[in-house]
Amino acid sequence: MWGFIRGKVIVSLLVMLTVSLVGFALLHLSGDLAATLAGENASAEQIEAVRRQMGLDQPLLAQYAQWLAGAFRGDLGASFFSREAVSSLFMARIGTTAILAVGALILAIAVSLPLGMLAALRPNSWLDRLVSALALAGQAVPSFFLALMMVSLFGVTLRWLPISGSTTPLHFVMPITVLAIGAIPALMRMTRSGMLEVLDQDYIRTARSKGVSGVRIMVRHALLNAILPLISLSAVQLGTLLGGSVIVESVFAIDGIGLLTYRSIQRGDFPVVQATLMFVSVAYIVLTLLADILNAWLDPRLQQRRTG
């Protein structure tokens, strides 16, 4: 087990390093940061002065090495505009984004599990087709459109829910719902396919021949064996929700990491954008690593398959 974990950790660290390097390079190549900071009417001398002041005149690898050394110390630099430490900006907002992402994942799982199980219990039936149609609809509707429709209906017309801010639990109802609807289709399909695969096994047919009820088979036998791929997908979905909250936070004016990222992209605030890129990437990698370790602990065969 420890050899499996060590190998996964090494691979994860290498992926993090690669993502940080590629992201750093792409952000620098996307435009002239010095010109953006100096302003539209800045002269060539003013732009060059800003470039020297910010260290942007150094070779790209030298800039990356300095940033990476600071990141290892917990220093992600300072915002070009507010001059606040990027780590402070993140710490002040990460709780809000985490509430949105975790709440949306819990809601998505609570909806996906029963619907996926029902669809697997009656494959190719009207219920199965209805669940598939709902999954397709949830995946097809853009999150910004759904958010605007919910604001119009529940916030403006019916006045049931507040439309902006994050000061009360009610402020999180619509954003969490929007994010959850985007995550439900993949979780629902994974639950259905996993259940169908398990329900076709010999031990399930044996249980049915002994008169075990369908619900008991689903919960006590099939679900426990079909939940492994769902764990991995849930980890990926949580990373997606953490990174995908930009649009939702912008629509509902929630002061989380997503809204901070949106404003930083608009202003060309490179240190904040770079930190956001690393935050999302590290979240993906760490969550996937934890899911792999949990799956290997629940099913030791995965260790043999991946190390053998």
Rank of each mutant, 00 (worst) to 15 (best):
L153E: 00
A135C: 04
P162L: 11
T177K: 01
G165Y: 07
R189L: 15
V173R: 03
A207C: 05
S209N: 13
L161H: 04
P185V: 06
Y203R: 00
V131F: 06
A137S: 13
M174I: 09
Q201Y: 00
T168E: 12
K210L: 12
P169N: 02
L134V: 11
G138A: 11
L158M: 13
I204W: 01
A135V: 02
T177V: 08
L153H: 01
T177G: 07
A137C: 15
R208I: 04
L199M: 14
T206K: 03
D128V: 04
T206N: 09
L136E: 13
F154P: 04
L158Q: 06
A140W: 00
R129H: 15
L199T: 11
L134T: 06
R205E: 10
G165P: 08
L136Q: 11
R129A: 10
V178C: 02
R192Y: 14
R192Q: 14
Q201I: 05
A133G: 09
R205H: 07
S132A: 15
M150S: 08
L187C: 09
G165C: 04
G194A: 10
L170P: 06
W160N: 09
P169R: 01
P162M: 09
I204G: 05
D202F: 11
T167L: 05
D128I: 00
M195E: 10
L170A: 13
A137P: 03
L170H: 11
I184R: 06
G138Q: 10
D202K: 08
G155Y: 08
A186H: 05
F145L: 15
S152E: 12
A133H: 00
L161F: 12
L148D: 00
L146Y: 13
R159A: 11
L136P: 06
P142R: 04
A207S: 09
G194D: 05
A137H: 01
V141H: 09
L158C: 00
V156W: 10
P185Q: 04
L196G: 02
P185T: 04
P175G: 03
L161P: 05
R159D: 11
T168P: 01
I181Y: 06
D200C: 09
G182K: 07
M150G: 07
L148H: 00
G165W: 11
I163E: 06
L187M: 11
A180D: 13
S152L: 15
M174S: 12
G165K: 04
V198C: 03
D200R: 10
T157Q: 11
M188R: 01
H171Q: 02
M174K: 02
S152W: 14
G182F: 08
T167D: 12
A137L: 15
T177H: 03
V141D: 07
A137F: 14
G155V: 02
M149N: 09
A135S: 13
R192T: 12
G194C: 10
V178S: 04
A135M: 08
A186K: 06
P185W: 06
E197V: 01
S166E: 05
T168F: 07
S152Q: 15
P162Q: 02
M150P: 08
A186Y: 14
D202N: 13
S193K: 07
A186Q: 15
M149P: 03
T167M: 07
P162T: 04
T177F: 13
V173N: 05
P162S: 09
S164N: 11
